[in-house]
Amino acid sequence: MEWLDEFPTLGRQDLRDLKKAIDLSFREFSRAYGDGIETFFDPLLYFLVWLEKLLINTPWPIIIFVVAVLAWIGARSWIVVGGTIACFLVIGYFGMWEDTMATLAIISVATLLCIAVGIPLGILMSRSSRAQAIVTPVLDVMQTIPSFVYLIPIIMLLGIGKVPGLLAVCIYAMPPIVRLTNLGIRLVDKEVLEAAEAFGASDRQKLFGVQIPLALPNIFAGVNQTIMMALAMVVIASMIGVPGLGRPVLRAINNQYLALGLMNGLAIVALAIIFDRVSQKFGARLQKHRESGHGA
């Protein structure tokens, strides 16, 4: 009855061999294709570096002006614009301007990348239940697997730097936009869709004329969540060489600098709140037609 007391295991030697085999084959894979994959991501790197330099080299009053204008376009609220300007002034005053610009750059690029990949993927999922069955578990893994675990293969493949950091952020931040795009399209009123069909709308006309416009509130909630999750990854991304507000936080952890950690942490929070308010108000304005109030 040995098997009752002792869990039947693979055996230490076999297990070690198995792990070694996996490690070796991945190492070989990354040796063979690592350079190719790195080249593939080069345009992304150039774009990220360009944006980062642009943000850092532009004089600060111009940046604050542009940010304020963007906040106004998005939120149409003086309170949000005022709050945004105040936050950026305080951030600059406490010497975190460059790091904030670097963080803004990576968040922007990561969000654009997530939108570019996530929305089409969400649309595909909404149109095919099979695609949904395949993609959903992948999204579950992306959201729940500890980030450190997928940092390992990414570093093995691409080394330390901006691109691997960007990928790590995207893996974590992409699921909400995919899920909410899929959900939003699936939740579109069946009767409205049936009406479009009854008037002879093609699949394309239904998608761009009815489904996506009516799913926009959900898609926008997805964009909002993606931005928030990207910001949450800033510290972890800085561990593999992404510049920005995460770096001082890491330094603060290593040296127990409470004030440094707190200030940079609060700067991340400020960015998050600005992004959130602006994008939510913008999303609400897309819903102009929902304003009720009967005429006559």
């Binding site: 009767e191 409205v192 049936e194 479009a196 009854a198 008037f199 037609h289």
Partner: peptide, 29 residues
């Protein structure tokens, strides 16, 4: 599709209007 566009149109019990379009755009749909 051509049949639905030109030869038979439909009115629905719960209206099924496009909520994001104005009355004019809905009628023109």
């Amino acid at each position: 599709r051509e049949f639905r566009r030109h030869r038979a149109s439909m009115v629905f019990q719960r209206f099924a209007l496009l909520p994001h379009h104005t009355v004019a755009d809905n009628v023109a749909y």
